[in-house]
Design a protein around this nucleic acid. Sequence first.
DNA 1: GAAATATGCAGGTAATTGCCTGCATGTCAA
DNA 2: TTGACATGCAGGCAATTACCTGCATATTTC
Lengths: 105, 105
Amino acid sequence: MDADKVFKALGDPTRRRLLDLLCEENGQTLGQLCENLDMARQSASQHLGILEAANLVSTVKRGREKRHFINPVPLHEVYERWVRKFERRRLGLLHDLKKEIEGEE
Amino acid sequence: MDADKVFKALGDPTRRRLLDLLCEENGQTLGQLCENLDMARQSASQHLGILEAANLVSTVKRGREKRHFINPVPLHEVYERWVRKFERRRLGLLHDLKKEIEGEE
DNA sequence: GAAATATGCAGGTAATTGCCTGCATGTCAA
DNA sequence: TTGACATGCAGGCAATTACCTGCATATTTC
């Protein structure tokens, strides 16, 4: 997993919207996804390319169409590496902050 | 929570490194953090500003120093909103992908 | 108060990003 | 096979980003 590509891919509202759209209905084509986006097809296509490069979306060609599927694996790995680490220490970290704000050092 | 600020803040390796450094030792000053970064102090300061704007880091002034603390709340909310959603559907999404690759439609 | 220390602010620049238009390629259907 | 449809590729442009330098401010220490 390339954490940088995954995070950068998620750092754009259009791309997060694309993931949401695919979550509602997996396997949509570029054309279908475009209908919900209010931007040129080529722009959406670039966003999908970035999601694909981050391995968050996998594609399958079906004749002249290209169907897009969410790949949940990298997101799971991001969770394991990034979120859980802070989640485990969450209460301790909040405690540090609280104590410092109270000025107790 | 401003999801966009949080994701954009996380979408840079230097800023993720800063969070890791703070996770090792919470409450470090700008100067301390800089020693591990190999870039000008001002650059690191900008990165910390972005983390602070995303509410991922909170700061407390202590005389001429500024101490930095991780705020785990936004990351938790990102997890709730983004990761769990796909995590719950993870096996189903993988199944969609597998079936499509196998060409079974 | 003067020197050293910790940080803040302003601006400049090269690289990247996100959007677009125009054109090319590949596929289906009449 | 021709016209319609789905997508790919190339390039251009404005905005943003990530880095820097130079200087200002605030705090501690001698």
